[in-house]
Design a protein around this nucleic acid. Structure first.
Lengths: 224, 224
DNA sequence: TCTATTTTGGACTGATCAGTTCATAACTGC
DNA sequence: GCAGTTATGAACTGATCAGTCCAAAATAGA
């Protein structure tokens, strides 16, 4: 097996003074360079956020171990040198992609939930969104990362826990919106989250979509 | 990335005339050699089922891509030659391990369910068994395989679907035992299965055991 | 004991892996 | 246009990968 726990100096550099990928911001972060005071030296020929999105896509489709650096750099449209200068290492890019995905997908779900006046409907939509993420059989990117790397990488566990806690909170808030004063809202929210995660597994195993949808409709029994 | 769809001739040979690994048998298959009529040639120095169990253990802990052939043969206690003569390829060993695991874990769950007179309790025990498989953070072996390989390996999907369908049936039978004539038993069984699979993910993300148990107790709401 | 058959250990193969190095290009400030 | 700085492309490195090969070993039947 291959351990990915070593940290080289470029990675730390990238983590400490990255200028377009701060951990907690909104969805769009590619058009903020007009504020930058123009550093000396040759400018980057690629957009960091765009490259990160491309990396996320490859990791999502292929998994971490199965993705080579040639796969990554080809998809990102940058050279090996640029990759290492910007992300430090393969695992550095993955962790950046994880944060990117977590922030973006949470923001999207929260927006969907807030935009739906009917809280019960909001919960159902959230379930469907998580279960059908990406439309294909790739499933939830977080589930993939946790499954492949969590047993050996504590950083992935940390990010995974934070992401799932955020989703649980989002479900709980909408449960309370649907049934004010509902007891054990957090526990029921966790059950909804589990249903959605389980659905991504059934989907990946090739189960027919209508059977999965019928199963998800049973979630109504959890908030009577 | 690395494709694993090529098939070499030793693998086919192993699949067609393997003598101790027929697809659908009980839990123990290591002590059936007393019926074999002693083939000519040097006898095997290892037990096939034992080696397969060891391979399963390594795949379970490390995942497919992250497990090297040296890892495998070391854990199985056999040489490279013996490995390829018996299993044909790395993916051949994985598929054999998947079938082994599926049969064994299903038999274990079915025995637990049958041994429990209280059907509701049987369902709760099954949920806990799936969620806490192996006691560690490795999660369900099938979930791991599906996540890592299903998008690119149709054979894994086929086995995964069969396994999940069997588990769904087992849940459904116990739901009907607890609530005779229950409508939509299959759908509710699928929801229970999703809850259990989701629980393995929460567990892998480092969620505290008591929070997961509290969540699983919400399953009662699905069979009122 | 001799032959046919199978298993075993270990060396070997070509491919691929993540990561490094370095000359050159492209910019800013002067 | 010159010095300082950063980005880029391509070649390179040593390790590791799955899989192959073959001589030696161990059996059964004769």
């Amino acid at each position: 097996m291959v351990h990915i726990s070593t940290m080289t100096s470029p990675a730390n550099k990238s983590e400490t003074l990255n200028r377009a990928g701060s951990p907690l911001h909104g969805a769009t972060d590619s058009t903020t360079d007009h504020l930058e005071p123009h550093a000396p030296g040759r400018p980057r020929e690629f957009d960091e956020a765009t490259a990160l999105t491309a990396a996320l896509d490859v990791f999502w489709r292929q998994g971490y171990e199965a993705t080579s650096l040639d796969d990554l750099t080809a998809a990102m449209g940058i050279s090996r040198s640029s990759f290492y200068a910007c992300f430090g290492s393969k695992q550095g890019a993955l962790l950046r992609a994880i944060v990117h995905y977590s922030d973006q997908s949470y923001a999207r779900l929260a927006a969907i939930a807030e935009g739906e006046p009917n809280a019960r409907k909001a919960v159902r939509t959230m379930l469907a969104q998580i279960a059908n993420a990406r439309g294909g059989p790739e499933g939830c990117f977080f589930v993939n990362c946790l499954t492949e790397l969590a047993p050996h990488d504590p950083k992935v566990i940390t990010h995974g826990r934070q992401h799932l806690d955020r989703l649980e909170d989002l479900f709980a808030r909408n449960i309370l919106r649907a049934v004010p004063g509902k007891a054990k809202a957090a526990t029921k929210a966790r059950a909804l989250l589990s249903l959605a995660l389980g659905a991504t597994m059934l989907r990946k195993a090739g189960m027919a979509a209508d059977r999965i949808e019928a199963m998800l409709s049973e979630a109504d029994a959890l908030l009577p």
